[in-house]
Design a binder for these strands. Structure first.
Lengths: 349, 349
DNA sequence: TTGTAGGCGTTATCAA
DNA sequence: TTGATAACGCCTACAA
């Protein structure tokens, strides 16, 4: 269709060097040009301060002139370090991970690290494969909403620093927000609006956070004298939400929390398609406050998660663990927050 | 807040080896256990077929018993190959890239390659940095909707196989869909509905595809005797679309194409907020058919792009280039397609 | 402060 | 078919 020209001539087995045929420049070239020993070049370039200012400059100039680029593999071989952090998200199409990714990415850049991103498409097997593959090349790993078993995660964490996001695993560092704060506000709000019975549409069974959210809702409802029940569970997608519509209608709840915004959107649309008016007949709440949660009519009320901080916090933690060997750094306290929009209203009479 | 326990004891400089203290097993260990030379192990494990069936099995058994894992750095040093392909997207928060990423990711897995994902956040500088960094470690690179200058891309392509998506760059392989097909259908549809004047809200000036889409719209409008004008341009986001609302209202067009769905959604919402009824007073069309483009009220009419195929096709091309050295493989012919939903209707009288 | 020399784990060349 | 041996590019004791 468009350009099908040769994107670069192959030159057989010499794939290591640039395709223009010239050898990539090494510290030996620099050493020669600067009139010093290669080891001095290595020191100057990797451990600034261990070389006299004069030779430092000479070496830097030579490096610049030769357009030198470190060979990360050669460096990784003796050190084992790559200045790279891996991030695995359970579903790249879930906008909730946008900000997690951005947060981790910018935090990585800030520290001159590179982020390697992979997704598991909600599959535990794929996740394990990706994790193992990544772990071989990165210095540390962040698992966002992992579907892996605790034992598998612990096994990974035994090899290199690992941080899980949105989940707790014994002996593994984790970044989780305090869901209680947002949930408390939400339930207080619903109580004020006259709701006496609320429902929860849960996420996947393997989701630690889905359970956590339910516990929070349940505790808070009890406290407020409101009845709360789990009416369904499913995949944490728009489609999963759609499929929960029947169960929701069968119940007698006048307000329903969904495990996340995606499910809430699916539920709302399916219900509306069946003629149910939102929020007049039913109030709907999501979790996370993802991109697009305000596109719907009515716009979705939701409990906002500090997505960006998940990513940034997790990354900083990994870096700390890398630096200090062990990390006793306290995780920042992250809070959720109620975002009221149009999908919640007074309980029907 | 949650678990802040030590995610793994540091053991000082020996970061290369597993944290349990044991050395990682090498081909030397296998050689010893199997009673052969390390070089034979290397052959057996990397170039199957160059070793007798008997020793092959012995080596594989030994490798399995010792739970051997190749050291990718050590392998990359002499070969220069990592079985890794880089993918840089201009904006990770644009759902249009979901399927591009998925397409490339699964195609990579199919061929036992790993995808490294990075984003440039619509910044040419960040993109160049990311591209250079990636290029050092990957075997090939895919640039999706790059903001780089042609010359910069050509420079990258001179080093390793590079494919650009959604853009044409001389002497660089590219994957682009035929926008004419979908645009022709759309304009025929609008003409039938009585529209005589349409507008185009363009994307970023650096976007090759934005220009391409305009050309297609213009050509097709001329052909149908419809007047077509560019009324605005901006960042390809919801917000960018919002900001084009004023310019759109000032014009006299009764139907407007936006560079992408994100802009179309922003425009529609801004207009609706100002009391404009869609599609009664104005028809709106987007491009790509992204996730969420049907969340709006009315749901968005759009021209669907073969997003998944962009990713898969680009990846296969890179792999081909890697294999054959040069690649004269023809790109698959990709077509766009009109998706009619609720944001288009008869021209107002 | 700088030079010397050995090693990181694999692949590749050359003999045997 | 297999074994010995030299790269690959960099880092790091150790010695000067």
């Amino acid at each position: 269709m468009t350009d099908t020209s040769n994107p670069g001539g192959g030159e057989g087995p010499a794939a290591a060097r640039p395709r223009n045929g010239k050898q990539a420049t090494t510290i030996y070239d620099i050493a020669e040009l600067a009139g010093v020993n290669p080891s001095t070049v290595s020191r100057a370039l990797s451990t600034p301060g261990r070389v006299s200012a004069k030779t430092q400059k000479r070496i830097e100039d030579a490096a610049a002139e030769l357009n030198y680029q470190v060979n990360v593999f050669a460096r990784a071989l003796p050190t084992g370090r790559t200045r790279t952090i891996g991030l695995i998200v359970s579903d790249i199409t879930n906008p909730a991970f946008f900000d997690v990714i951005r947060g981790a990415g910018t935090a990585a850049s800030d520290h001159d690290y590179t982020l390697m991103l992979a997704e598991s498409a909600e599959s535990a097997e794929l996740e394990l494969t990706a994790a193992r593959r990544l772990l071989a090349t990165v210095d540390g790993l962040i698992l966002a909403s992992p579907r892996l078993a605790d034992s598998e995660i612990q096994q990974l964490a035994a090899q290199k620093p690992v941080v899980v996001v949105n989940r707790n695993v014994e002996d593994v560092a984790s970044v989780v927000a305090d869901t209680d704060a947002g949930v408390a506000d939400a339930i207080r709000h619903l109580a004020t609006l006259g709701h006496r019975h609320i429902a929860y549409v849960a996420g996947p069974d393997r989701s630690w956070m889905s359970k956590r959210r339910w516990e929070s809702i349940k505790a808070r409802s009890d406290w407020s004298g409101i009845e709360a029940t789990v009416v369904a569970s499913g995949v944490p997608t728009v489609d999963g939400g759609r499929r929960s519509a029947a169960a929701v209608r069968e119940g007698s709840a006048t307000a329903v929390f969904c495990y996340n915004d995606l499910m809430a959107i699916g539920l709302m649309r399916e219900l509306q398609a069946a003629g149910v008016r939102i929020p007049e007949e039913l109030s709907i709440l999501g979790f996370d406050n993802i991109f697009g949660s305000d596109f719907t009519t009515p716009p979705l009320s939701t409990i906002k998660s500090p997505l960006h901080e998940y990513g940034a916090g997790a990354l900083r933690y990994v870096l700390d663990a890398l630096d200090k060997g062990a990390s006793d750094r306290a995780m920042p306290s992250l809070k959720t927050e109620l975002v009221l929009r149009g999908s919640t209203g007074p309980a029907p009479a």
